[in-house]
Structure formats: C-alpha cells, structure tokens
Nucleic acid binder design. Structure first.
Lengths: 194, 194
DNA sequence: GCTGTGCATTGATGTATGATAAGTAATGAT
DNA sequence: ATCATTACTTATCATACATCAATGCACAGC
C-alpha cells in the first residue's frame, strides 16, 4: 500500500527509494471499513490521510443535527482538518469513510522531515494549498451566485465519477439543498436529457 | 509607506533592515483613489497587494451582471487572485478599492527572493495559506448551514469595524442575499436590540 | 420466499428570500 | 446651499427551496 503512495509522490516530485525509506516510518497503513469515522469534530488530531482506494467525506453537524458535506476525497486525495492538523485546535468537521478504504496515515513529522530531505517537497505542498484555495473560492462563488440546478451541474462536471458513488443525501448536503430538492432537480434535468 | 510594510513583516518574522533593503526593489508604493479597479476579472496579473491603509474588496460578476463579494481586505491584509498570481491563469475576480487606499504592490519575484533571504518567510506564508483555508471552510459551512440572520451576525462578529465602512449592498452580496433582505434582517435585529 | 431498514421519489403546503417598485435618507458635485 | 446621485428602507407580490408526510424500491438478513 505504501507503494501506491510512493508512486504518487514520485509522479510529482523526484524522490529516490532511499529518501522514501527514511520517511516511511512516519507512515501508517490503514484498511478501514465503510462508515468509519477517522476524525471527530471538536477533537484535536494532527494526522493527514492519503486515500489509496476508497472514498472519504468531511462534514459538519449543526445545532439542529443536520449534516453538511464540506468536501469529498476519492483516490489520491489528501485529507486533514487544517484547524487540527496545522493549528492544533479542535477540528471543524468529521472525516468519515463512505466505502471500504485503504489509506496512508501521515504524521505531522512526515512533513517536516520531507521538507528537509526533499527540496521540492515544500514548494509542491504550497502548490496544493494554492490549488485548494482557488477551488474553494470557486465554490463560494457558486454558493453565492448560482441556484440548485447550476450547482448540481457543476458538481457532476467536477466529479463525474463520484456522482454514482456518493448517496444523493450527501450530494444534496454538499450543494446546500435538501435531498428532496436534489431529486426534483434531477427530474427536471432528466426530462431535458440529463 | 514601505515602513509600514517593513514593521508588519518584522512583527511576524525576524527581518533585518539590510534584508528588507534587498527586497525593497520588488515593492512599489501605490496611492489609489476610492473605487479604482486593481485587477480585472479574466485577466492575468501576478501581483499581490498589501493594504497599508484603506479597504479593498474582491468580487465576481455573474452572467446576469450581478456582483458577488468574495472577500474584503482592510489594513494589513494581503490581496491577490491565486488563479492569476500563482497559476498564471485568468483571474477569477475583480479587485477594487472601496476607500482611498495606500498599498504596496508586491511582485511574484519578491516571494522567491524573500524565501531565499529570510528562512522564516516561506513557513510564515504557508501558515497564512492554512489560515485562509480554514477561514474559507468556515464560510462554506455557514453558507451551507446557516440562514441570512446567522450569516450576518457572524459577519459583524468577524469584522466589527468593517460593518460601517462597507456599503450594505456589498455586505449583502458577501452574505449571498439581496440588500433588501439584509435590510429586513437588520430591522429584526434592531427590535431585538441589535 | 417474506420482512425490515435505508434511500429516493412524489405531492401538498409553508416560508425565507428574491424581484420589483417606490419612498426616504445620505452623499457628493457644482 | 442646492441639486443630482447613490444608498438604504419599506411594501407587495412572486418563487425557489424547505418541511412534512406518504409511497416506492432495493437490498440484507432471516
């Protein structure tokens, strides 16, 4: 399983097998059943997960008990709660598996070691952060500007292969609408020929 | 004006006057009148602005011609469009002054030079990125979970000193509601005693 | 095969917010 | 100071979406 992570790493930044071996002790393989909670809301956990296979969702629960999907993470995504991982404060959301998932648990130490060992590591992580910021800005703009149908169309365009792996209830909560509304949106789109 | 930026910098990371002088050539002082557009949507501009005094807003215009505030930036904020600044792609939004504003225009080169000259610079920037991500996640969660009144209350809590400097139309667009709705929300809150 | 449980759909009804329009207050220019 | 422009409020009506409740459907366990 670590090999998947190694290959992924080597795809983006030059990493020798020796370098990887030195970092390897900071990595833990986990095979996790569907519907397992990896990070609890309001707890402190500084680990990051790399998804080898499977699917993860991050979500919050509001005071009414309603869930709101913050993001989904399929294969080759990094998952953490910045509040907890970076700032050592209570996490803002839950992180949970939606499928049986193989993942690599990465300690905070890994980042520090990797930054020293591999010169390209830190800049690459910076790029990932920038990417995530522009992604979120796009999403905020959609939530402000577009209505349900547009948001759903954007979702299936962005994640064409996830639409059928994620329950509609959760897609609805990602879009900020109820499952009923999503169902109606889908009905309208179906008459238009998707 | 560069002194304000220098003091700000030295407050967060140890920077000698000599180090700062070496970077100074990558900084340009600008005094900009109210309502001046600094970055156009859909153009490429890799500069970052540091606000010394004044106030800036970033916003998009949708296909209906409506404006949507992405964020506001008062004194001591950094402003850029990641798409343009980091990825050299067309910017996602406009950046405009809401008040007469003094700012430092920072070139992309500044970042590279500073990272070499000052060891703490890159980690500090990483921290700013992480902070901005958790801020945006909070905002997404609010847009998904909360209704107008809660979002407005959160806004005035977050930016107590900005509420009276930003026209309500723009606050409304930040919250994802119409100015009329904001007016209604404010009326209800007024009867409750703010 | 049944039967239960969890999602998705559908319909009836309610509500927060949008759209439009018009009035008032504040701001800025001459 | 006056007038023009912009910003905010108020009112009415329209609508997208929520809520509540019922039904349908699929799959799991027995």
């Amino acid at each position: 399983m670590k090999d998947i992570f190694k290959e992924y790493l080597q795809k983006y930044i030059p990493t020798t097998d020796e370098q990887f071996d030195q970092l390897s002790s900071e990595l833990t393989i986990k095979h996790v059943k569907k519907n397992t909670i990896l990070i609890e809301q309001d707890t402190i956990d500084d680990s990051t997960f790399f998804v080898c296979n499977g699917l993860i969702r991050a979500y919050t629960i509001d005071h009414q008990g309603k869930e709101h999907a913050i993001f989904f993470a399929p294969e080759h995504w990094w998952v953490n709660d910045k509040n907890s991982f970076y700032f050592c404060e209570p996490s803002l959301f839950y992180v949970e598996t939606l499928e049986d998932t193989d993942l690599v648990q990465i300690s905070r130490k890994f980042y520090d070691k990797a930054a020293i060992l591999i010169p390209e590591f830190a800049p690459w992580q910076t790029k990932i952060l920038h990417n995530s910021i522009r992604f979120m800005q796009k999403r905020i703009n959609l939530l402000l500007a577009a209505q349900a149908e547009t948001r759903y169309l954007d979702f299936i365009k962005m994640y064409p292969n996830l639409v059928h792996r994620i329950p509609q209830t959760m897609i609805a909560s990602y879009l900020g609408i109820t499952p009923e509304s999503l169902s109606r949106v889908r009905k309208v789109l179906a008459t238009k020929g998707i």
